Lab assay of single mutants.
Amino acid sequence: MAAGGDHGSPDSYRSPLASRYASPEMCFVFSDRYKFRTWRQLWLWLAEAEQTLGLPITDEQIQEMKSNLENIDFKMAAEEEKRLRHDVMAHVHTFGHCCPKAAGIIHLGATSCYVGDNTDLIILRNALDLLLPKLARVISRLADFAKERASLPTLGFTHFQPAQLTTVGKRCCLWIQDLCMDLQNLKRVRDDLRFRGVKGTTGTQASFLQLFEGDDHKVEQLDKMVTEKAGFKRAFIITGQTYTRKVDIEVLSVLASLGASVHKICTDIRLLANLKEMEEPFEKQQIGSSAMPYKRNPMRSERCCSLARHLMTLVMDPLQTASVQWFERTLDDSANRRICLAEAFLTADTILNTLQNISEGLVVYPKVIERRIRQELPFMATENIIMAMVKAGGSRQDCHEKIRVLSQQAASVVKQEGGDNDLIERIQVDAYFSPIHSQLDHLLDPSSFTGRASQQVQRFLEEEVYPLLKPYESVMKVKAELCL
Rank of each mutant, 00 (worst) to 15 (best):
Q51K: 08
K367R: 10
D268G: 10
N185G: 11
E228R: 11
D441W: 07
S140A: 13
L311P: 00
L346M: 14
Q416T: 08
L443W: 02
V405S: 12
S306A: 07
T52A: 13
G203L: 02
Y365F: 15
R190I: 08
Q409Y: 08
M225V: 08
N185S: 10
G419N: 13
E220C: 12
A342E: 06
A256R: 02
D32I: 13
Q320G: 14
Y472I: 15
D182E: 02
P378H: 00
H86I: 00
D32T: 12
Q325K: 00
P153A: 10
S323N: 04
Q456K: 04
T347F: 13
A22M: 13
D398N: 13
K391M: 06
S395W: 05
R426C: 04
K218W: 08
M292N: 02
P133E: 09
L155A: 01
R329Y: 01
D332F: 03
F236M: 08
M65C: 08
S207D: 00
R371S: 03
T52V: 10
R196H: 14
S323F: 02
V251P: 03
P100Y: 09
E60I: 08
Y432F: 13
C172R: 02
A392P: 06
E79L: 13
G169W: 03
E376K: 05
L44S: 06
A322Y: 12
V88D: 00
E79W: 11
I176L: 13
P100G: 08
T321V: 13
T330G: 10
I386G: 05
E48W: 01
H93L: 06
F212I: 11
H7G: 05
R396H: 03
Q416M: 13
C483V: 14
R33A: 10
E277R: 02
S67E: 13
T450P: 03
F95R: 01
E70P: 11
Y294A: 01
G8S: 15
Q41T: 10
K134F: 06
M278V: 12
R14E: 15
S454N: 13
S31I: 00
S15C: 14
K470N: 13
S454A: 12
G116N: 13
A291V: 02
L440D: 04
F145I: 04
K224N: 09
A388C: 08
L307Y: 00
Q455L: 11
Y472N: 15
Q241R: 03
R374I: 01
R452V: 10
L307E: 03
T350G: 08
V88C: 08
V363S: 03
R396W: 01
D430L: 06
K35Y: 05
S253L: 10
Q61L: 07
E50P: 00
Q397A: 08
P293H: 03
H159W: 01
E64N: 08
L346K: 04
E360G: 09
I249F: 07
L331V: 08
L193G: 06
V363L: 13
T313D: 03
S140P: 05
S23W: 07
E277G: 02
V115L: 13
G418V: 03
A3W: 09
L53G: 04
V226C: 09
Q456A: 08
M387W: 05
K402L: 08
L165W: 00
R83D: 14
F212H: 05
W45S: 13
G451M: 01
K479I: 14
G214V: 06
F157C: 06
E81P: 04
R303Q: 04
K479C: 14
R309L: 04
I176E: 07
R245A: 00
V324I: 07
A206W: 00
I139F: 03
S207N: 03
K367F: 03
T267V: 09
S412F: 15
R296H: 08
S306Y: 03
H93G: 13
D422M: 13
M387H: 05
L152E: 09
T58D: 09
T313Q: 09
T111R: 03
T201H: 01
C304F: 02
L443R: 04
Q455W: 06
T239R: 01
Q177L: 15
M89L: 03
A150G: 12
T38S: 08
L314V: 09
S207G: 14
L314G: 08
E64L: 10
C99V: 12
S323R: 03
R190P: 02
V262L: 10
L174Y: 08
Q41K: 14
L131S: 12
P435E: 08
R137E: 08
L406D: 06
H91A: 14
L406S: 06
E220A: 11
S290A: 04
G240V: 01
V138K: 06
C305M: 04
S31M: 03
C340T: 13
P366L: 03
R149C: 11
A260Q: 08
R234E: 15
A256G: 11
Q41I: 08
K391Y: 13
S151E: 08
L377V: 05
G197H: 03
E148L: 09
V138S: 11
M299W: 00
Q51V: 08
G4E: 15
D333L: 02
V262T: 15
K75W: 13
Q286P: 02
T267I: 12
T201A: 03
L174C: 15
E64C: 10
R40F: 00
F433R: 03
M316L: 12
Y114G: 05
L121D: 00
L362M: 14
